[in-house]
Write a protein that binds this DNA or RNA. Structure first.
Lengths: 198, 198
DNA sequence: CGTCTATTTGAATGTACTCAAAAGCGGTGG
DNA sequence: CCACCGCTTTTGAGTACATTCAAATAGACG
């Protein structure tokens, strides 16, 4: 039911027995957030592993000039949180906020530690998850270093067509590392180019 | 002797017994590279975990315009390689190259898998290493998104004063995501500002 | 319907890049 | 030991990509 998306997401990477599934279900509890609510506040410790089952959320950082920069964004089926804060159980540099009305499954750091012991496959899963997250960050650094804003936007659209439609443009701009104004101009330029082609 | 730096680097994060140390020593074998030699070639699989005991090396990516972009740089006491290629044992997108005459300790993927079983503390160590690497990438993304080239350069100098002195400027520029010409201009501007202050 | 926020548009500006050329530096061979 | 070669760094002029600021327009929500 509620946990199906979570379990199938885990089982993409590791094989679980029915007992494992049952235990994982017992560890993760549902929670709802209204649009705009905070899943994690800057300065607080991110105490939970959080998996989105409905809606969407962003993790962002506020720099010294007060500008927001989105590190991570996610919709249902994705993990969200301040990973850095969670891993080291230290105060978060980032805020995590719901973009739509959002439902998550969450489990505390302590419960996850225990889960690792009882379901070693989950331990393995978590490691794989970190590795993928690491690789995703590396790709993002490479893109930021080597591609223009236009190319990054096109790559984003290609990779996450669903997000493009659901998230406000300003968040996509922030994720890409450009201003919302410039993204708007980029989009117009691309549209003009498209219409000329016909 | 040769393995001391490696062991003390591991023991910063986990506690080892003498038997553990002995086994780790047996797994890692030394290897030397001349300045300019490749530790890993693009397209080949990065088969080894590599730890620098002397010298320095960079991991870089070549984009479609033929420009190099440095993802990672390291001197003695640092791990180096194409982590993505190593983790998934897939062909590397990157080259890894010695900047000075360099000596490393290396262990194959298979040997490391066995090491995980025999020395569980090494398993734990490796996980911690990935977590730190992940966090470092996140910081780098944040810096690229929120800071000017000048601020990034100053942050780099503050964080890695040793590297600043030993590596050619063009590699530092590439790591920071700017052209060598522009870094040269930045340095002059900073010098002029310093001299005025006196 | 009115308010609040998000998006679009335009003009002026700034940061960083490209290209080209000169200067510096290190290694190598005569 | 010096001269030369190749590579790195510096410098300058012109340019491009992206930002800032301000204002208008469009959408979303109560």
């Amino acid at each position: 039911m509620v946990h199906d998306l979570l379990l199938s997401s885990i089982e993409k990477y590791v094989t679980l027995g029915e007992a494992d599934r049952e235990y994982i279900r017992s560890v993760f509890t549902p929670r709802k957030f209204k649009k705009g609510q905070f899943l994690v506040h800057e300065g607080a410790v991110c105490r939970n592993q959080m998996f989105i089952t409905k809606g969407s959320a962003i993790t962002y950082f506020i720099d010294m000039e007060g500008h927001e920069h989105i590190i991570q964004l996610g919709i249902e089926g994705w993990w969200i949180g301040d990973f850095q804060s969670y891993i080291f159980q230290q105060p978060a540099q980032c805020n995590v906020q719901a973009i739509e009305d959002t439902e998550i499954l969450e489990a505390s750091y302590e419960k996850i530690q225990k889960l690792y012991e009882i379901v070693p496959q989950y331990d393995r899963f978590h490691r794989i998850l970190i590795q993928y997250a690491y690789v995703a960050f590396q790709q993002r650094i490479l893109q930021n270093l080597s591609m223009s804003a236009e190319d990054r936007y096109l790559a984003f659209r290609g990779k996450y067509p669903k997000l493009e439609l659901r998230l406000p443009q300003k968040y996509i701009a922030s994720y890409l590392g450009i201003t919302p104004e410039f993204l708007s101009k980029l989009k117009r330029k691309l549209q003009e180019r498209d219409s000329k082609r016909e």
